[in-house]
């Protein structure tokens, strides 16, 4: 495993991340986040002091295995009720600006 030490967060990377996360950022925000992320990541690389080669990662702290539900249909919430929170809808369908990019 290659540990990238002293990673530098560049403006381009921040812009790429903003694109992935679908966040519209102002020029000022891009500058700010470049600086802040660079400083934070720099500090977080403290973890590289530890050798973790044979350590299993922990993703959850609950010791049990998964719990199931049985396959039965439960009454869901009233469509009319939840459609009230939808910003735009037409005849029960959620309306969004036309999807041009397919994917």
């Amino acid at each position: 495993m290659v540990i990238k030490k002293f990673m530098h967060i560049t403006k381009e990377l921040v812009e790429h991340l903003a694109k992935l996360a679908l966040l519209e950022l102002t020029e000022e925000e891009v500058t700010r986040y470049t600086r802040e992320l660079d400083s934070l990541i720099g500090y977080f690389e403290k973890l590289n002091e530890l050798n973790t080669t044979h350590i299993e990662p922990t993703y959850q702290v609950v010791p049990e295995a998964i719990v199931f539900r049985e396959d039965s249909v439960q009454e869901s919430f009233k469509r009319e009720e939840w459609l009230k929170v939808v910003p735009q809808q037409e005849e029960g369908a959620i309306k969004v600006p036309k999807i041009i990019d397919v994917g």
């Binding site: 990238k4 992935l20 996360a21 966040l23 992320l37 990541i41 977080f44 973890l47 922990t58 993703y59």
Partner: peptide, 24 residues
């Protein structure tokens, strides 16, 4: 932004996985 970076391709092992190991 930070979390997107941590999970993104090429950085996952060095940051997210590493942190999960230190969590252990």
């Amino acid at each position: 932004m930070l979390g997107t970076f941590v999970l993104s391709s090429g950085y996952y092992d060095a940051y997210y996985k590493k942190a999960s190991q230190v969590r252990t």
